[in-house]
Design a binder for these strands. Structure first.
Length: 244
RNA sequence: ACUGAAAAUCCA
């Protein structure tokens, strides 16, 4: 099963869901039963390909075969529904989980907060955050970052910084992605002075990468400041990164 | 242990 899990996951990662499905069917013909990890890999493949129907059908198949649809499987399905803007589907999954007395957990809350943030519903995102806290569920760096990203994208930079300050008091320190959200905000509104300042601080903390440099360069280019952009590019190469 | 799920730029 360990081998099959990797193989199915690998096929799906390279966009070969159909082959993964055939592989699974083949195993079933040999009366080999798969565990929930193999199935979640397949579910993930379907969701990545936007084939929600097939994913749900597979989930029903799991139930029929007596395979436990665990939290990870629900997480995959939730994320697939949310990425498809299928709020109804997402809520029916939540109901289903509630009936099974399963709690969403921080990963699923992260998906929800991220989805709300990406669609500009910051009030709903924060509300979800509070429900999560109320359940005693601890957010991690990714959860915080999803919220910070939504707040930055909506222009609530002060709110975002408030949450980042809160992170410093917990065990999850803001990482490259978290700071990247703020950096993207600054470069998007053209506040390059603050952006450069932040990037400097990030560089000291070894929190820069291709993406952060890309944001800076894009910001300068958008303002027509090609001279500045080229010096950032030079520094990028100096840092041992490979511009893409 | 990036092992089956979640976060930033770009990628039409």
């Amino acid at each position: 099963t360990y081998t099959y899990r990797s193989w199915i996951s690998g096929l799906c990662l390279t966009g070969r869901v159909a082959e993964a499905k055939e592989f699974v069917d083949g195993l079933h013909r040999q009366d080999i039963s798969l565990n929930e990890m193999c199935y979640s890999a397949l579910l993930h493949g379907y969701c990545q390909a936007g084939r929600l129907e097939d994913a749900l059908r597979t989930a029903r198949d799991m139930v029929e075969r007596g395979v436990n649809v665990d939290l990870v499987c629900y997480g995959v399905l939730m994320n697939g529904n949310l990425r498809n803007h299928d709020i109804c589907g997402a809520f029916s999954l939540l109901d289903e989980m509630r009936d099974l007395r399963m709690r969403p957990g921080h990963v699923i809350y992260t998906s929800m907060i991220d989805a709300y943030g990406k669609s500009g519903k910051l009030d709903a995102a924060v509300e979800t955050w509070e429900v999560m806290i109320g359940e005693g569920c601890r957010p991690n760096v990714v959860t915080y970052t999803a919220l910070v990203n939504g707040l930055c994208k909506a222009g609530y930079i002060d709110k975002a910084e408030l949450f980042m300050k809160e992170m410093l008091t917990t065990r999850c320190f803001p990482n490259t992605v978290t700071f990247g959200c703020v950096l993207d905000y600054l470069t998007t509104i053209g506040n390059m002075e603050s952006a450069v300042q932040l990037h400097h601080a990030m560089r000291e903390g070894l929190l820069t990468n291709n993406a952060t440099y890309n944001m800076l360069i894009r910001g300068f280019c958008k303002l027509g400041k090609m001279q500045e952009a080229s010096s950032v590019l030079a520094q990028m190469v100096e840092s041992g990164l490979f511009p893409d």
